[in-house]
Nucleic acid binder design. Structure first.
Lengths: 219, 219
DNA sequence: TAGATTGTTAATCGATTAACAATC
DNA sequence: TAGATTGTTAATCGATTAACAATC
């Protein structure tokens, strides 16, 4: 087991997990670094290195048991230990996440959502109650909340982030598209910058015309 | 100007762009690698290296003109050359993107959206007309479409992707959460795997309890 | 001119790949 | 046993950082 796992490795774990979950659903019981390698576009060597950061999931001469490996990675990611989250901003995007995103598969439970629109207050989306946004601070003080999901307009980002960090929130999943420029102590921000993703795609597409590059990438 | 620009550099360009756009709005005219460095959490050295992949935006002894640099990066990303896109799937997420996402700022124009729900056909979201999903192939044949935005249920992903690739679509912006396992020729897939992002955040949050690591990251 | 900051080369560091002994 | 594939060490490659001459 390595001293410190690099962020590159961590960011590949969800991909392994996804692949393995798919294999398990398809009834595959056994795999190998070579097998995963061809399916995922990584080298077999890298896969073995990655998996070995967390101890021996495999068996020499045999490979890996799909289920065991999936469970192992899920455990490393800590999916079994549920995190509590609230969604702040129930516009189209907040609703899209509440309605369609499988928080549970990430080991996250959404306990409430907040919005300023009186028409939404008291309603529920996928069981989750929508509360008045003024009630957020009180809610955070009364309930254990690990993560806030920011799906509100940019102008509120700074205040809400600081409020959350002050009230025990340790992680911010930020969909606002703006970077959070605030003093949050050791609260972690994970940005989902959709424009970064689209701009990157655009770069490679436009490059095609003149240079005809080849590329396949992951966000 | 370097022979081949690494993906790492390309993925930082949108961040530079975002920062510079903010500075420009705030009326700042001048900056330097050191200035950007402290604001963005990169080393000044790396910033100079990155920017130099695309030629001399700066001026010795002075630094960079914010506007000039922003325009330069926007040009590298090709934002001026508009790409045509269609959104396939007008559920919550499709609507969220159509209603709130600034495609224009990425140099992308959405010309149509497609859905199977008869109740939606003929309506518009942010000017964009919603068409019958059966009409997609015909539309692609008649109109130049560079990118499809996939915001539909997973089970349709494979067929729609292949159909698109066959009909001249060069890029797929994939929000379905599943990897696209299909023969797409040289069509580029850019995945937005939200679960990867949340799982990564979760990993670092849970790690906190036992190890108290420090971390700040970007998707 | 003196001070500042780039562009760029060289040094370091870390991540990926290759190789192979261990072993199932 | 022979064949396969891991775990792991060593080699390579690339990315980041440091240093500094060029020059505004």
């Amino acid at each position: 087991m390595k001293y410190r796992i690099s962020a590159n490795v961590i960011r590949r774990l969800p991909r392994y997990l996804r692949r393995l979950t798919g294999m398990e659903r398809a009834g595959e019981e056994r795999t190998s670094s070579r097998d995963l390698s061809s399916a995922m576009g990584l080298t077999a060597s890298q896969i073995r290195q990655d998996l070995n950061c967390f101890g021996g999931f495999g068996q020499q001469g045999y490979g890996y048991r799909v289920r065991e490996l999936r469970e192992g990675i899920a455990a490393v990611l800590g999916i079994g230990e549920t995190l509590r989250a609230v969604v702040v901003g129930v516009g189209n995007l907040g609703r899209a996440l509440l309605a369609n995103f499988r928080f549970d598969e990430c080991g996250v439970e959404v306990t409430a959502a907040f919005d300023a629109d009186p028409a939404l207050i008291g309603r529920r989306v996928s069981e989750v109650p929508i509360l008045e946004s003024d009630a957020l601070e009180g809610y955070l003080k009364e309930n254990p909340v690990d993560v806030i999901v920011l799906t509100l307009p940019r102008k509120f980002v700074k205040d809400v982030s600081e409020l959350a960090a002050r009230n025990g929130v340790r992680g911010i999943w930020n969909f606002t598209g703006s970077d959070i420029d605030a003093d949050l102590g050791d609260t972690i921000v994970e940005n989902v910058h959709l424009s970064d993703s689209l701009l990157t795609l655009g770069y490679y597409l436009r490059g095609r015309t003149s240079e005809n590059q080849s590329h396949k990438e992951e966000t």
